[in-house]
C-alpha cells in the first residue's frame, strides 16, 4: 500500500476524531496542516514568483529597473522595526492606490452598470416580473431615510421575503458543498485506502 495514502488516511481520521471531542490526534493533524501550508506557500512564492519575476530579471537579464519594486517589497518588512515602521506605508500606499484605481472603474462597469442593464427587462414573462419585483423590494428594504410604513412597509416586507429565499438557497447550496467534501473524503478512504469500492 502507498505510504502517502496511508498517511493521508490517518490524518483524515485524526481530523474527523474532532467530531467526538477535541483530542491530541486532531491537534497534531491541524498543526501539520498549518505547517505544511505555510511552508508550501513560502517555497512556491520564491520559486514561482521571486525567482522568475525579480532575481532572474535583475541578476541574469540585467534589468535594473526591477530593483525598485524589489526595494519597495523589502520596505514592507520595516513594519517589524519600530523606528522605521512608518516607511512601510510607502509600498502599502502604492498598492492601495493602484488597487483602487484599477478596481473602481472595473467594478462600475462589470458590477454596477452591467447589473443595472440586466435588470431593465420587459415585463413579458414571470421570471422577469419576479427579478424586477425582487430588486425593487430589496432596495426598499435597504432604504432607511423613511419609515417602513404603508407602501414602503409592504415593499420592505416583500424585500425581506426575497432576502430569506436567497439566504435559504445559499444555505442549501452550502449544505450540498459540505456533503460533497464528505463524499470526497469517503471516496478516498473507501477506494484509495481500503479498496472497498471501484
Amino acid at each position: 500500500m502507498d505510504i502517502g495514502i496511508t498517511i493521508a488516511a490517518i490524518l483524515t481520521l485524526a481530523i474527523y476524531s474532532f467530531l467526538y471531542k477535541d483530542n491530541p490526534f486532531y491537534k497534531t493533524a491541524e498543526h501539520i496542516l498549518l505547517g505544511v501550508s505555510v511552508g508550501y506557500f513560502v517555497v512556491i512564492t520564491i520559486t514561482n514568483t521571486l525567482i522568475p519575476k525579480l532575481f532572474i530579471p535583475i541578476f541574469i537579464e540585467g534589468k535594473l529597473i526591477y530593483i525598485i519594486p524589489g526595494v519597495l517589497g523589502l520596505m514592507m518588512f520595516l513594519r517589524f522595526h519600530r523606528r522605521s515602521a512608518q516607511f512601510s506605508r510607502i509600498p502599502l500606499s502604492i498598492i492601495i492606490g493602484v488597487g483602487a484605481g484599477a478596481a473602481i472603474p472595473a467594478y462600475m462597469q462589470a458590477q454596477l452598470l452591467a447589473q443595472i442593464k440586466a435588470t431593465m427587462l420587459p415585463l413579458t414573462n414571470l421570471s422577469n416580473i419576479i427579478i424586477i419585483a425582487a430588486v425593487l423590494t430589496v432596495l426598499v428594504f435597504f432604504y432607511f431615510s423613511r419609515e417602513h410604513k404603508g407602501v414602503m412597509g409592504f415593499g420592505a416586507k416583500a424585500g425581506i421575503y426575497f432576502l430569506m429565499l436567497f439566504f435559504g438557497s445559499t444555505f442549501g447550496y452550502t449544505v450540498m458543498a459540505r456533503v460533497s467534501l464528505l463524499i470526497g473524503r469517503m471516496q478516498f478512504l473507501l477506494h484509495n485506502w481500503l479498496g472497498l469500492i471501484n
Binding site: 462589470a110 447589473q115 440586466a118 427579478i131 436567497f166 447550496y173 450540498m176 458543498a177 463524499i183
Partner: peptide
C-alpha cells in the same frame, strides 16, 4: 465553482456576463 459560490454567480449568469455555470459536485 463550489456549490457554496453558485448563488453568487447566478446574477452574472442572468446578465449574460458568463457563458454558463458549472457548480459543485452535482
Amino acid at each position: 465553482v463550489t456549490a457554496v459560490m453558485a448563488t453568487t454567480m447566478y446574477p452574472f449568469l442572468q446578465s449574460g456576463q458568463l457563458v454558463g455555470l458549472v457548480a459543485g459536485l452535482k
